[in-house]
Design a protein around this nucleic acid. Structure first.
Lengths: 201, 201
DNA sequence: ACAGAGGGGGAGCAAGTGCTCCGGATAAGG
DNA sequence: CCTTATCCGGAGCACTTGCTCCCCCTCTGT
C-alpha cells in the first residue's frame, strides 16, 4: 500500500515549469514586500511584483496567511542562523553575545515583517523559529555563564531582543545607529558585576 | 475689536446641554476603546459605546484623527504627569529614575494607544507631549548626574522608555511582571560604574 | 407655548482588501 | 501535431471601515 502510494506519484504529470517558476517568483516578491511593508501589505502588490495574477497567487497559497507563513519561516530561520553564525565566529564568550545581538538587530532593521512576526510569537515556544533562537541563546548563556549576572534567563535575553528590535525599527529611518547605544547599556546591565537579584515575576 | 469679538460670543446661542453631554460621552468612550484596542478601532464601536450615532460623532470630530488626537493628547499628558509625580516623590535621585520608569511602564500596560502614539512620535520633538516628557527626563538626568554613566543622553532614556514600553505590551497578557527584570537590567547598565563610552551614532 | 437654529441618528456611499470564478492559454504526454 | 490536464489572469464579490447626507427631533431664547 505504501508502495502503491509512492508509485502513484509518477502516474501524475510532472509539474509544469511555468507553475514552478511562478511559485518562486511569488515567494521572492513576497519576501521583498514583506521586508519593506510588513504583513499588512495588499496581496495585489505581491502578485504585481511577482508578475503573476491573483488566481496564480491563490492557487499556490490558498490563504494570504499561508504565503506569509511560508516566506516568514524561511526568512526567520535564515535570520536566526546568521545571528548564530556571528556568535560562533567570536572567540570571547562575551563578544559572542554582543555579536549575536548586533547581527540579529541589524537583520531587524532590514526586515519589518520578521520583527512583527517575532513580536507576535516570541512567547509561543512551540514555534520552530523561536525554538531555534532559544537554543542559540541557551548556548550563549552556557558559554558566558561566568560573565552573566546571576538569575538571567533565556526568556530575559529573548525579550531583550524583541524589545531592542522594536527600538531598531523606530530609529532605523531617522537615527539608524542609535540603537547600538541601548544595546551597549543593556548588555552592560547583564554583566556579572551586578549581583543584585533580578525581580521575580 | 477684541472687545467686540469677546462680546460676539454671547450673541450666539449657548451650547446645547445634550451636545456637551454627548461630546463628553464620545471622548470617554474613545478613551476606553483606545486603551483596549489601539487606534485601529472601528469608529462605529466608539459611537456605540458612547451611546451616540455616527452623525453626532462626526459633528464633534470631523475626522477620526481629530478624535484620537484629542483623546490621546489628554491621556498622554496625564500619563507623563503621573510618571513625573512618581519621580518627584522619590528622595533618592536613583530611585526617582527607577520610579519614573516603573510608573510610566505600568501606564503603558493599561493603554495600548498611548504606546502606539508614543512609538510613532517619539522622534518628533515638537510635539507637546514628547516635549513634556523630555523635560521630565532632563530633570531626572540633572538630579542623577553623578550616578549616571557618562555620555547618556535624554534621547537614550526616551528610546529606552519606548523600547521597554513595547516589551510591556508584549508581556502584559502572559507574564505581566516580566518587564521589571528587563528594566532592572537596563537601569543597571546606566549606572556610573560603567565608564566605557557609549558608541557614537 | 412657540419658532427655528442646531444637534441626533443611522442608512448608505466610496475605497480598500482578502478571496473566488471561469474562459482562455499552455505545457506535458503520446 | 494533437489532446487534455493543468495553470494563468484579472474582473468581480463580500466584507470592512472612514465618512457623508439628510430627515427628524430637541433644546434655547423669547
Amino acid at each position: 500500500m505504501a508502495v502503491a502510494e509512492r508509485e502513484s506519484a509518477p502516474r501524475r504529470r510532472a509539474p509544469r515549469v511555468d507553475a514552478v517558476r511562478n511559485r518562486e517568483a511569488i515567494i521572492e516578491a513576497a519576501a521583498e514586500v514583506l521586508a519593506e511593508q510588513g504583513t499588512a501589505v495588499d496581496v495585489r502588490e505581491i502578485a504585481r511584483r511577482g508578475g503573476v495574477g491573483m488566481g496564480t497567487l491563490y492557487r499556490h497559497f490558498p490563504k494570504k496567511e499561508d504565503l506569509i507563513h511560508t516566506v516568514l519561516r524561511k526568512e526567520f530561520l535564515e535570520w536566526a542562523e546568521s545571528a548564530r553564525q556571528a556568535a560562533i565566529d567570536a572567540e570571547d564568550p562575551w563578544m559572542a553575545l554582543t555579536d549575536f545581538y548586533q547581527q540579529a538587530l541589524t537583520g531587524c532593521a532590514r526586515h519589518r515583517a520578521i520583527m512583527e512576526n517575532f513580536a507576535l510569537t516570541w512567547s509561543v515556544p512551540d514555534l520552530e523559529g523561536i525554538q531555534q533562537l532559544r537554543m542559540v541563546i541557551e548556548e550563549l548563556c552556557a558559554r558566558a555563564t561566568n560573565l552573566l549576572r546571576p538569575g538571567v534567563t533565556t526568556d530575559d535575553l529573548l525579550l531583550l531582543l524583541v524589545s531592542l528590535g522594536h527600538a531598531v525599527e523606530l530609529t532605523d529611518e531617522c537615527r539608524p545607529r542609535m540603537w547600538n547605544r541601548l544595546l551597549r547599556i543593556s548588555l552592560d546591565g547583564l554583566r556579572a558585576e551586578h549581583r543584585e537579584p533580578l525581580p521575580a515575576e
